[in-house]
Nucleic acid binder design. Structure first.
Lengths: 146, 146
DNA sequence: TATTGTTATACTCTATAACTATA
DNA sequence: TATAGTTATAGAGTATAACAATA
């Protein structure tokens, strides 16, 4: 459908409503589990890489370092992560997810992805796989663009 | 890479940074052509369907009816669209894109998509097509979900 | 009374810049 | 002096509700 006449829709124009819908669908799930959107994003990031400095963590999730502080406060308060000071450099804090944080993250992610499957189920299996594969490539290559 | 072990990344988690990057890349292009992001979105919508009521137009682009008024004011001021009152129902306004609006939209879109190609070029041609096709399907099926 | 467009208001998000404590 | 984290402030973006004109 695209490119047969050399024209196609904007990538951004197709992604934007999709993003809105996905966020809206996540909202009740997050609320049910007592997580904010940024809280979930942070847990998701920590699930992979174990430790990091707050500034690096912020950049990794696409936020300002000052913006995630409230988020980290809440997550720490709920026992979902710990952030003791780094003995080697007492300015920095070693942010690590707790077992409870991991459980919470997995529970939420399971529900989130179950919701996403409603959409992905509309696609032929081969396209579904190509979509997920392609998005992973694009998301990972973004930092290298400039 | 997804699904070999039954696990995959969140669709939303991959799309979010992509969306941010695309928007950031569009910004200088839009500025150079004297368009706001919403202005471009509105022109893009009008390029397809010719007329409509402002409320329907707003909903179509995913905005509140009160939010696009300033946008329409600017576009009208710049001669990119017209919105005479509907003689049949003088409450409504018939919003139509002008020739100049069409030209402006096409010029911007050409540059926007040229930028997007930098990303899409990272994908194998078959995946590129599957991605565009799949996103179009998902974006179109969203309203029918609930 | 209901609807279209509009305006006004409040609220949330985000970015920036100052501050502290360590180095 | 520079850096990590924090706090405070201002700005942009957004949603909500009230209003005028028309139906």
């Amino acid at each position: 459908m695209p490119d047969v006449d050399g024209r196609r829709r904007d990538l951004a124009a197709m992604i934007a409503p999709l993003q809105r819908a996905l966020v809206a669908a996540e909202q009740p799930v997050l609320r049910a589990h007592g997580l904010s959107m940024w809280g979930y994003v942070v847990l998701d990031a920590l699930e992979g890489q174990p430790v990091r400095t707050q500034a690096a963590l912020a950049e990794f999730v696409g936020a300002d370092k000052s913006r995630i502080i409230g988020v980290l406060d809440e997550l720490e308060n709920d026992g979902l992560l710990e952030r003791p000071r780094d003995p080697a450099d007492r300015r920095a804090r070693l942010v690590t997810i707790t077992g409870e944080g991991r459980r919470r993250h997995r529970a939420v992610q399971a529900e989130v992805q179950r919701g996403e499957e409603r959409l992905l189920g509309l696609l032929p299996p081969a396209d579904r796989e190509a979509l997920l594969r392609s998005l992973a490539v694009l998301a990972d290559e973004l930092p290298k663009l400039d």
